[in-house]
Simulated assay, not measured.
Amino acid sequence: MTIQVAVASVDGLAVNQHFGRAERFLIYRIGEDGRTELAEDRPVRRACGNGDHETEALAAAAAALADCRFALVARIGPAAEKALAKRGVLAFETAGPVESALGKLAAHLSRSRSRTAPASPDSSALVNPIPLQFNPTTTKE
């Protein structure tokens, strides 16, 4: 089964964008073999500005990522995190190269598949449900 991952990136090279400030997300696919491929560059309406978020724009950004299982972001606020979780998307705060973060996520998914069938996302689990060894630079535990 292929899993889609939304990545918040300013430059396309690093996970370095706050969820609410993102005007686009790079959508990657991770195959069962662990290979990753860029599927699309998806524009969204920026949800935050000057420290405030626009509820409608936040919901629209989360809805735009509803076909993804995970979102990799530099930072995410609690309202955005909950909006994503409500749609079955688990958010992870991380930083560093996109390929490295995706590789670690793919490795974790591979280990999970070998132990049991992957569980569906739990909407009550929010930031960082993957063990800490996944996160290149965890900001929350």
Rank of each mutant, 00 (worst) to 15 (best):
C68T: 15
D122F: 03
R42E: 01
A14L: 04
R69C: 06
G103V: 03
C68N: 12
A57Y: 08
A74R: 09
F19S: 06
P118H: 13
R35W: 10
T55V: 14
D33E: 11
P43W: 00
R75Q: 15
A106S: 03
A101S: 11
S9A: 03
V10A: 09
I76H: 01
P136L: 08
N135E: 14
D33N: 15
L72V: 08
E81S: 07
F92W: 07
R35M: 14
G96V: 01
R35S: 15
K104T: 03
T94R: 00
E56R: 08
V44N: 01
T137G: 09
C48L: 11
E141S: 12
P121E: 09
N16P: 07
L102V: 07
P78C: 02
G77R: 07
A22V: 01
R42Y: 03
P78D: 10
T55S: 13
V15W: 00
A106L: 03
V73N: 06
A61N: 08
E93M: 03
R29K: 11
V89M: 01
D11A: 03
M1N: 12
A79F: 13
R75K: 10
A71S: 11
R87D: 06
D11E: 02
T94I: 00
F92A: 12
N16M: 07
P121N: 12
E81M: 13
T2G: 07
V15D: 00
A117V: 02
A74W: 10
T94S: 05
S112R: 09
L126W: 11
D67Q: 04
I130K: 08
G51S: 13
T138D: 06
A47M: 13
V15A: 05
C68P: 13
E32I: 15
R113P: 01
T2F: 11
K104L: 08
F134C: 15
R46D: 03
T116N: 13
R111F: 10
V15P: 06
A22H: 02
N128E: 15
Q4S: 03
P131K: 02
A62W: 06
V44H: 01
R35I: 09
I3Y: 05
V89I: 01
R75I: 05
G20I: 06
A83C: 08
R69V: 05
D41V: 13
R29T: 06
L72K: 05
V10I: 09
L65A: 12
I3N: 02
A107S: 05
L13D: 11
R46Q: 14
R35A: 13
L72T: 06
F70H: 14
Y28A: 04
F70P: 11
